[in-house]
Design a protein around this nucleic acid. Sequence first.
DNA 1: GTGGTCTAGACCACG
DNA 2: GTGGTCTAGACCACA
Lengths: 129, 129, 129, 129
Amino acid sequence: MFELDLRSRSPMYEQLVEKIKDLIINNVLKPDEQLPAVRVLAGELTINPNTIQKAYRELEHRGYIYSVPGKGSFVRPAVTGDNTARLHALENELSRIVSEMLFLGASPADIITLIKAQLSKDEGGKPDD
Amino acid sequence: MFELDLRSRSPMYEQLVEKIKDLIINNVLKPDEQLPAVRVLAGELTINPNTIQKAYRELEHRGYIYSVPGKGSFVRPAVTGDNTARLHALENELSRIVSEMLFLGASPADIITLIKAQLSKDEGGKPDD
Amino acid sequence: MFELDLRSRSPMYEQLVEKIKDLIINNVLKPDEQLPAVRVLAGELTINPNTIQKAYRELEHRGYIYSVPGKGSFVRPAVTGDNTARLHALENELSRIVSEMLFLGASPADIITLIKAQLSKDEGGKPDD
Amino acid sequence: MFELDLRSRSPMYEQLVEKIKDLIINNVLKPDEQLPAVRVLAGELTINPNTIQKAYRELEHRGYIYSVPGKGSFVRPAVTGDNTARLHALENELSRIVSEMLFLGASPADIITLIKAQLSKDEGGKPDD
DNA sequence: GTGGTCTAGACCACG
DNA sequence: GTGGTCTAGACCACA
């Protein structure tokens, strides 16, 4: 399904969380689609099931998936509640990154171009595919 | 000067690095300006001087400041080479964030507006303020 | 594994960095091989674990090793980009040393011989030993 | 006469030592030539006379100059005594540098070329000019 | 078990 | 006064 970087400083469960979050955001994993069972994924990635479980728990905590005891884990159709808080945090991150890119010598035009490219790419992929 | 979040998952020295990096990027700390002495900042933040020093050393490694033993720590005037790698990483971060903002319901127009605001703000703030 | 000179002007962690760097350069420590654990090495050298960690972190910054929290520290397989700057610095050092050797009475022939010996030794030692 | 890098991590007296040593090695300062008086040099470089004095003391200790109380400091005509020890140290340094250059991707041919260029340059400059 | 963070406190070299 | 080194010892997260 995907690979983990064993050499990365970031813990494996965190890498898992980010990877799966990206799959959901980019609509590769559709709403209500079932995620691979913990043991299955653990087998494929040859890592400890506990690590998978920790990642799933984290994803559930962050509102990206929901778990049904005895059935499995599924992609949450719409993100829950307080998006504004999360959006605000993202806006800050975005501002920080833009500032740093300018500091490192990127031109404003480059940045705008980059953003627009990303926007059109995501717009194409997001609507019910 | 600024505050640290003692509860945060990211270590105090890392928070310090980010805070100071931001002050440099946003030209609040000018080139060759002296940073607060290790012990002084440690006193103000009521944390251990070693922690400050760890942050300063990290900033030095990343090319944002230089420390002269016996004299003090200062803002490095121009960023040292090799920005392309860092810029590439930032582009990826930026793409990821834009995707997530769209996923959480932000409109493309909002995002463009936000970026442009940031660009003009930084452009105004960077040259000799 | 090796010894440190407690009287030396250069700090212990710096000596450690140089020693380990040499072991990596001379292929004694192979790519992806695990370095001794921080506490283990600290025990063997009877110095503080923090000192070892400082050395390891420095080696990581310089691109010679990578550390994975909870797993260990390992030799980085290939050196990361940007070698030109480092190479330039080494060329200068080399020129300086040759000049000084001449000044101290070494003959040009001796120096050439010495270099060639080193070149053939390293060439023999580098590929899969 | 020359400049010091105030931003450098290496202490000013050490920079002075290296600079003057280079001038002697490259025969810019001739044997028995008098070095600038401590106060004069301190004035030119706008640094503390104590720093100059420390550098001169160090140079004397290393055998590059001699001081005549009340008269001044002079370039020592021939280096004193045990060159073999110093030469041995330099050979080791040289070997280390060659190894590292190879490790960083320099070709043996490049290194030989570099050495020969340095040798002919120094040979031209050394004999009693 | 691993690396990592943080503290408290001592000592050193530099200018 | 400055930054830097080192120790001793506690605690945490990860796998």
